[in-house]
C-alpha cells in the first residue's frame, strides 16, 4: 500500500496481528503440548514427556465406539449434505422462480440458529416421531446444519461456469439429464469432493446438537463433552489432537481437489 508510512505504527499493527494469532492459537497448540505431558493439571514448569493419554484413549472401548459413530455419521452426513447442497446450488444457479428468496433463506439459515436451540428443537421433534436417541437422529440434524456449507461451495464453483456452456450442450442435442451428467457434474466435480470433505469435517466437530439428540449412541465430540463434565482428564487433549489432525487432513485434501483442475484449461 502506498500512502503514509509510519514504521512505528505499522510495527504496532503487525504486533497486534501477532497477538491476535497467539490468542487464537495458544489453546490449540496448548492442547497438543498437554496431550503429550505427564501432568494431569499441566502448569509451568511442564511435566515430562508422556504418551500415557494416547494409550488411555487407545484402550478405551467407549472412545472407539464413539469414533466409529462419528465416522458413520460423518460419512452419511457428507453424502446427504452434498447431494442436497448440489441440488440447492444448481437450483439457485439455473432457475428464477417465485419465492426464491424464501427458498434460499431456508437453505442457508441453519448455521445462524444457536446450537442449543437447534438441539432442543430437534430433540423435541425427533422424539415425537420416535427418531431420537440414535445415530439416525444425529445424521438428520447434521444434514440440516451441513448442507448450507455444501451448497455454498458448489454454488461458488457453478458461478465460475460459463452459463452458455449448458445452452451449447442443449443445442448439440443433449437433453437436460445428459447435459447434467456430461457437463455440469464434471465441471463441479472438484467442488463436490471439497463439499464432501468439508461437511464431514463440520460434522466431526459438532457436539451440541449431537449431544441433545444422540442419546446413548454418542459421537466422539459428545464423548469429549462428557469428559469435560466429569473428572478432569487430559484425554480430551489427546482426542482433540487426533481429531484436529484428521479434520485438517480433510481440509487439505479438499483444498487440493479444489485447486488441481484450475491449472488445467477447463
Amino acid at each position: 500500500m502506498t500512502g503514509n508510512r509510519n514504521p512505528l505504527i505499522n510495527g504496532l499493527l503487525k504486533l497486534h496481528i501477532t497477538l491476535c494469532l497467539i490468542f487464537i492459537f495458544a489453546p490449540i497448540a496448548g492442547s497438543f503440548v498437554f496431550s503429550l505431558n505427564s501432568d494431569r493439571f499441566p502448569s509451568l514448569p511442564l511435566g515430562s514427556f508422556s504418551t500415557e493419554w494416547y494409550r488411555l484413549i487407545w484402550e478405551d472401548p467407549l472412545v472407539w465406539a464413539g469414533f466409529f459413530n462419528t465416522l458413520l455419521v460423518g460419512a452419511c452426513v457428507a453424502a446427504i449434505a452434498t447431494l442436497l447442497g448440489f441440488g440447492g446450488a444448481y437450483t439457485d444457479f439455473r432457475y428464477k422462480f417465485f419465492g426464491k428468496p424464501v427458498y434460499l433463506a431456508l437453505a442457508l439459515l441453519p448455521p445462524t440458529i444457536p446450537v442449543v436451540i437447534m438441539g432442543l428443537a430437534m430433540l423435541a421433534f425427533l422424539s415425537r416421531v420416535s427418531l431420537s436417541g440414535n445415530v439416525i437422529s444425529v445424521i438428520i440434524a447434521h444434514g440440516v446444519m451441513c448442507s448450507p456449507f455444501a451448497m455454498a461451495i458448489i454454488r461458488l464453483r457453478l458461478s465460475q461456469m460459463d452459463p452458455d456452456l449448458e445452452a451449447a450442450a442443449w443445442n448439440l442435442g443433449g437433453n437436460e439429464w445428459v447435459t447434467m451428467r456430461h457437463v455440469i457434474i464434471p465441471f463441479t466435480k472438484p467442488a463436490i469432493y471439497a463439499a464432501l470433505f468439508i461437511t464431514m469435517a463440520v460434522s466431526f466437530d459438532e457436539f451440541a446438537v449431537a449431544w441433545f439428540v444422540s442419546g446413548l449412541n454418542e459421537t466422539l465430540p459428545v464423548k469429549v463433552l462428557g469428559f469435560l463434565q466429569g473428572q478432569v482428564s487430559p484425554r480430551i487433549n489427546a482426542i482433540g489432537s487426533l481429531a484436529f489432525v484428521s479434520s485438517i487432513s480433510f481440509i487439505v485434501i479438499a483444498q487440493l481437489l479444489m485447486r488441481n483442475p484450475e491449472s488445467k484449461p477447463s
Partner: peptide, 30 residues
C-alpha cells in the same frame, strides 16, 4: 491461517483454556 480454528474442536480449545486460566495454571505461573 484464520480458517484453521473452524476445524478444531471448540470443546478442546475450551478445555485447554481451563489449563491456561486456572488459579495454578499456565498464565498464573507465568
Amino acid at each position: 491461517v484464520l480458517i484453521i480454528p473452524f476445524f478444531t474442536s471448540y470443546l478442546v480449545r475450551v478445555y485447554s483454556l481451563q489449563v491456561f486460566l486456572s488459579d495454578a495454571g499456565i498464565l498464573n505461573a507465568f
